[in-house]
Computed example of a mutant assay.
Amino acid sequence: MVTAPRPLHIVHTEASMGWGGQEIRILTESKGLMERGHRVSVLCAEGSLLQQQAADYGVVVTPLPIGRKGWRGLRAISRWLREHEPDVIVTHSSTDSWLTALAARLRSRPIPVIRLRHISAPVTKNLPTKWLYGTLSQHVITTGELICDMLVEYNGLPREHVTAIPTGIDLEQFQPGEQRQARAAVGLPEDLFIIGIVATLRSWKGHLYLFDAFSKMATPNMRLLVVGDGPEGPDYRKHVHQLGIQEQVLMVGQQRDVVPWLRAMDLFCLPSYANEGVPQALMQAMACGLPCVTTTAGSMGEIVYHGRNGLLVPPKRSDLLAQVLLNLAEDPVQRDLLATQAAQDAKRQFGLSHMLARMEQQFYAVLP
């Protein structure tokens, strides 16, 4: 008789103070793993946004002094591991990865560590980093195949040491809906054509290029809906005013539930130029049945196939972006075709259960 794998005690660590797709994946994955019968602990930096948001996901987190590298953080993690004895640890940012991997390795009974790399920025090529990724970590998981290839080809990791497991999304939550009802819910008029973006206001998400593109192609009945907040917010508002489009750009800040905002859009645009894996916002927009325009940055081309379920433009080309957006805005037939295919592809590929099952498989694979 085959015995089912035992439930695990899984730990996620995160030193980041910010909020974005990386932190959302940690909490979403933790919630999903708990629903599958596992015990999950999340160790985060004291005062972080992840700590503040965790209750919305039903996840209990433990704040520790791991916001920066140092003996205090190393001692805190070592003490916590000694008291709780988890089966496997998943680290997410550089600082917590170093602290946790060292703490796990210094024990008499080492705990297997998985390094999860979310973004496509190159990993520093030096001996300490190779030691962290190749020796201190039993396996490396990335959010896209491109990131795997970079770690293998540029950093010299063995291919069998790296696995791509894109983030999954809740397809019961993110699905097509009635636009009129969504606009009424968020207070937007029915008679506008709305181009939208959902993203943290960080430089590499490409908002400035979208603002510039919108200023070149906007008609009086168009609006640009910007959902999200972040460090670049004040500068972006200033830029919008300098372009003279402040009456047509709706910056609504961070929203707890982005579904009605997505459903209120006519098309979605994410013009990132760096660092992306497979962005959750792009997956969510596709799952909601939106025609999407994005770039070839990171692993976005692994889910968007140009002319089939979305459109791809080169990064940092606001002139081309403006032309593509305007052409699509004037072509309802193409928008419908792209949207229908995007929703079908999302339903087949982006489910949360697929990600959770693959993560589980990798956890069991690294156990001693």
Rank of each mutant, 00 (worst) to 15 (best):
M1R: 07
V2R: 15
T3E: 15
R6K: 14
L8K: 07
L8N: 03
T13E: 02
S16T: 09
M17N: 10
M17K: 11
G18R: 08
W19E: 08
R25F: 10
S30I: 07
K31D: 15
G32F: 04
L33K: 10
E35H: 07
R36V: 04
H38Y: 15
H38W: 13
R39C: 06
S41E: 08
V42T: 11
L50W: 01
A55S: 06
G58F: 05
G58A: 01
P63H: 00
L64M: 10
P65T: 07
R75S: 13
R79T: 14
L81E: 09
L81Y: 13
L81P: 01
E85I: 10
V88P: 07
S97H: 09
T100H: 02
A101Q: 05
S108G: 08
V113E: 01
H118K: 08
H118S: 12
I119R: 12
W131F: 15
Y133F: 14
T135C: 03
I141G: 05
E145K: 12
L146H: 03
L146R: 13
C148E: 11
L151D: 03
E153C: 11
N155M: 12
L157K: 09
A164K: 02
I165D: 15
I165V: 15
G168F: 02
E172S: 09
P176I: 00
R180A: 14
Q181H: 08
V186M: 04
L188A: 05
D191S: 14
F193H: 11
I195W: 13
L201P: 01
W204D: 11
L208C: 05
M217Q: 07
N221H: 15
R223G: 13
L225F: 10
E232A: 13
G233S: 14
Y236A: 03
Y236F: 12
H241G: 13
G244K: 00
V249L: 10
V252A: 02
R256P: 06
D257C: 09
M265Q: 08
L270V: 13
L270P: 01
P271W: 11
S272Y: 07
Y273A: 09
V278R: 15
L282Y: 00
A287C: 02
C288H: 07
L290S: 03
T295D: 07
G301F: 15
H306Q: 00
H306C: 00
G307I: 00
G307D: 08
L311G: 04
P315N: 03
A322Y: 09
V324G: 00
L325A: 14
L325E: 04
L325R: 09
N327R: 10
L328F: 03
A342V: 03
D345F: 12
R348T: 12
Q349F: 14
Q349Y: 15
F350H: 06
F350Q: 05
G351Y: 01
L352H: 07
Q361V: 02
Q361K: 01
Q362F: 03
A365L: 12
V366R: 04
